[in-house]
Design a protein around this nucleic acid. Sequence first.
RNA 1: GCGAUCGUAGCUCAGUUGGUUAGAGCGCCGGUUUGUGGUACCGGAGGUCGCGGGUUCGAACCCCGUCGAUCGCCCCA
Length: 420
Amino acid sequence: MAKTPQAIRGTQDIFGADAEAFAFVVETFERVRRLYRFRRVVMPVFEKTEVFSRAIGETTDVVSKEMYSFDDRGGESLTLRPEFTAGIARAFLSNGWQQHAPLKVATHGPLFRYERPQKGRYRQFHQIDAEILGAGEPQADVELLAMADHLLKELGITGVTLHLNTLGDGDSREAWRAALVDYFRAVKDELSEDSQERLEKNPLRILDSKDRRDQRFVADAPKIDDFLTDEAKAFFGAVTSGLDAAGVKWTRAESLVRGLDYYRHTAFEFIPDEGSEAAGKLGSQSTILGGGRYDGLMQSLGGAATPAVGWAAGIERLAMLVGDKGEPDADVIVVLEDDAQMASAQALISTIRKAGHSAELMATGSPRKRFDKAVKSGAETIVSLFSPDDGCLASRVRGSDEWQARIEELLARSRTSPRA
RNA sequence: GCGAUCGUAGCUCAGUUGGUUAGAGCGCCGGUUUGUGGUACCGGAGGUCGCGGGUUCGAACCCCGUCGAUCGCCCCA
């Protein structure tokens, strides 16, 4: 026999209760984004490689080692999207969506990153995503975060806190970065091996290193607050007071930095509280929703300076926190005890479904087992069809009085109009 | 890219210090009940023990390699 091909590493075949939880997350997101008047967009799964390399930053891990890139038949380098933001920014520029600014959009779908899979982390994973394009005022950040907070509540997720930071404007961020490099370079030999490397590539990340050798120095490291311009301070102040007014709980996270080059000003992550049930379910992954302001991104793609904010959340990670959604039982199960009544059974189940009730027909395998299966399925209402000696159709309904009456009525209807 | 653990039936797993024909539960298939009732009882099918080498009289078990999975590091959603 030929060998069965295996699934690609890091991909998932989502089924059963997991698929229900996944759908619950997406459906809830769709409902909430309408409340906030975010418009639906459907984006390509792949783009020219430069869309991502220019927007995200050549030196980031995502671009330098995690992209699924390939040459198409025309010799052009394409990449399976590792995130939504860059593609949405590209669409904003190439479709003239400036005319709709400020534009609030939402989308969801698969993303691809070549990483080692582990709990809550896959090579093909799925995100929900929300962006506000062409809005430079702190009110946009507040609205976006209020929606994220609202969504998590609608999903029933607790024990998660918004961690908030500001990276200042471009100049603030650069000055802070330079100061951090100076500070850590002086003690380079005492840092962890990872952080010695981060010093060159991504010095901001040393701040949230888990290594004790690094943590000794973090407390006295230069603070972003000392490098913020007055405007940047005022902006962050407006965001935080707006969140307070909107009833969104948050905590300041001075060392929170985001990995991608394009972030400015507001940066945030929703993270499970230490020791919470949510933290346990997520394994070593912590961030379930993250994002920030990316005022410089449009220019990196050759567009006019356009302020924007956005976030994305991992559907799989959210689905791990929403509890068991299970698959709902059928409203009605029709058990065909005599195959001679097959046509009647088909007519009845069709009528039941068209009346808006979920229904399943049990008509295969040993007739004696069919009723067993129906009972095991957990359905409250079971209709069995059989033929008494006269060969006519007879039925028995097991269920509440209300359902018995309803089924009798539907049965009568299916008899009089078999094509109903 | 690095590290740890683990691969036995469709699924979840047992399998003693290496020793006849590798087991259980669930699921699947069939049978039994002369029955408004049942999630019962009996039986059956299904396994190159991930794959390839090695050690041994003999390997699911020990050794090496390889593939895969899981979890962690890095990074991220």
